[in-house]
Write a protein that binds this DNA or RNA. Structure first.
Lengths: 239, 239
DNA sequence: CGAGGTCTTGAAGACGATCAACAAACGTGG
DNA sequence: CCACGTTTGTTGATCGTCTTCAAGACCTCG
C-alpha cells in the first residue's frame, strides 16, 4: 500500500530495502473516507499521519465568509499530513474530493524513524519540502498570472505528478472533481472557472468529461502555463 | 549570531544547551550582502545554507514577462535556505531587500546534525514546516481576499514574527522596503498598493514613514485581515 | 545640477465577481 | 417507474476591483 510513496521517493534519491522496510513497519491500518468527508480536521491534534493510497483529497481552508480556498490537491502516494508529526495542531483541514483510502502512521513510530534512520528522515523531510515548493508555485500563479494560465498550470502539475506514481495513460488521467472545486484551487468563482475551461477546450489544450482529463497539446499547455517542473525536484540526487 | 534563530526554536519547544552548541558548532562564517543583491540565485546548487542574522530579504520569483512575485519576507533569525540542504537546486532566488548579514552553514555539518541529533533535526524540519504553513496563508490570502485585507495580513504577520525575535518596540517595527516591493508580495500593481496603503492610513490602522511601521489599532487590523496566528505554531510543545 | 528612484494622483479599460436563470444528470423515496 | 430535490454545468448582463498608461512632486545621490 505504500508503493506509490516509495515511487515518489525513488524518483528523487536511492532508497535502500532496509529503509523501505522501516517505513512499511511503521505503517498502521488503512482507513477509508467518503467523498466530502474530512481526512483531517482543522484545529485537530492528530496522533498519527495519513498517507493517501487511493483517491484525491485537498488541503482546504474555510474562510469566515464561507469562502473556500484549496492550497494543494493530493493524490495516491502523498504523505498528506506528515507535518502533523511536528506541528501538532492543524491550521487547515484535509478534505476527501473522492472516496479515499489512507494508511495511518502512528507518530510514535515515525519519531522512531527520525531517531534511527537519518537518511530516511531527510527523505520524509524532502517530501514536505516539495510541498513547500509547490505552494510557492501556487503563490506565484495566484499573484501574477491570469485565471487561464493558472488553470493550465494546475493541469500541468497534476499530469506531471501523476506520471510519477503511474496514474496516467498517455496524455490522460482521472480527475473526477467538480468545476466548483477547481475554482477553489484557482482562486476564482465557479462561473469564471467554467469560462476558462471553455477557452482551454476551444484552443485544443484540454478535454475533460466524465472525470477524465486529456491534454492533447502538452507543449501548447506548458507554454500557456509557463510551466517549469524544476520545483518538483525530479532528479535522483543524494539527499 | 544565531541567537535569533534559537529564540525562534525556543518559542516552539525546549532546546537543550547541547543542541544549541551543536548548532553553533555547525556555523561557518558571516557573509554580508548589499541591498538589491542575491543571497541565493535561482538555479544555483548551494553547498551551504544561510541563516539571516541582520536585515530583510525576500523569496523572489522572476517571471518570463519581467513580473516579480515575492513568496516570503525573511527577517533576522530565519534559516532562509535550509531547504537547499535537501532540495539541491534552487527553483527561486533570495533577494536582499536591505543590507543583510547571514551565517553560512556548510551542508556537511548540517548533515552531521541530522545523523546525531534527531530532536534538533526535527526542529530544523519544524522551521521549514512553519514556512510551509506561512506559504499556505499567502495562498489563501491571494486566492480569496482583496488587496486591503492581504496588506493588513502581511503587517500582522510581520509584527507577530518580529515580536518573537525582539525586533518590535511597542506596536512599531522597522520595514525599510518600497511600495513596489510590497506590491510584489501582495500580487497587485505598485499603483494599487499605494492606494491600499492610503485607505489603511485613513482608517487609522497604519502609519508607515521613514521605514518605520506603526500599527495603532491592532484589534482593528486583525479583524480586517482575519488574522489567526495559529499557523505560526507559537506553542511550546515536545516536537 | 541632472538623473533616477519613489510616492502620488487621474482616467481609461480589462479581468473577474455577482446575480439570475435554465438545462442536464443524479440519487432518493414514493 | 416516476416525481422530486439537489448538484453540476452553462449562458447572459451588470458591476467592481484592479491594471495600465500618463504625468507630476519629492527625494537622494553622484
Amino acid at each position: 500500500m505504500i508503493d506509490a510513496f516509495l515511487k515518489k521517493l525513488r524518483a528523487r534519491d536511492y532508497l535502500t530495502e532496509v529503509e523501505a522496510q522501516a517505513l512499511q513497519n511503521a505503517a498502521g491500518r488503512v482507513e477509508g473516507f467518503n467523498a466530502g468527508s474530512w481526512l483531517v480536521r482543522e484545529d485537530s491534534r492528530p496522533s498519527h499521519s495519513l498517507l493517501v493510497c487511493q483517491g484525491l483529497c485537498a488541503r482546504t481552508t474555510i474562510l469566515a465568509d464561507g469562502g473556500r480556498q484549496i492550497s494543494a490537491i493530493h493524490i495516491e502516494g502523498d504523505f498528506v499530513d506528515l507535518p502533523s508529526l511536528i506541528l501538532k495542531r492543524m491550521d487547515h483541514g484535509i478534505l476527501a474530493l473522492t472516496d479515499c483510502k489512507a494508511i495511518s502512521f502512528p507518530h510514535d513510530k515515525l519519531r522512531e524513524i527520525t531517531a534511527e534512520f537519518p537518511h530516511l528522515t531527510r527523505l520524509l523531510w524532502l517530501s514536505t519540502l516539495i510541498d513547500l515548493a509547490t505552494h510557492r508555485e501556487w503563490i506565484v500563479a495566484l499573484g501574477r498570472r491570469d485565471a487561464e494560465s493558472r488553470a493550465a498550470r494546475l493541469f500541468c502539475e497534476l499530469k506531471t505528478r501523476m506520471d510519477i506514481v503511474g496514474l496516467t495513460r498517455g496524455n490522460s488521467f482521472e480527475l473526477p472533481i467538480s468545476q466548483q472545486t477547481l475554482s477553489d484551487c484557482l482562486g476564482v468563482s465557479a462561473v469564471h472557472a467554467n469560462r476558462v475551461l471553455q477557452t482551454l477546450r476551444a484552443r485544443g489544450l484540454l478535454q475533460w468529461s466524465d472525470g477524465t482529463v486529456t491534454l492533447p497539446d502538452w507543449q501548447g499547455l506548458v507554454k500557456l502555463a509557463d510551466f517549469d517542473p524544476t520545483y518538483l525536484q525530479l532528479e535522483i540526487e543524494p539527499r
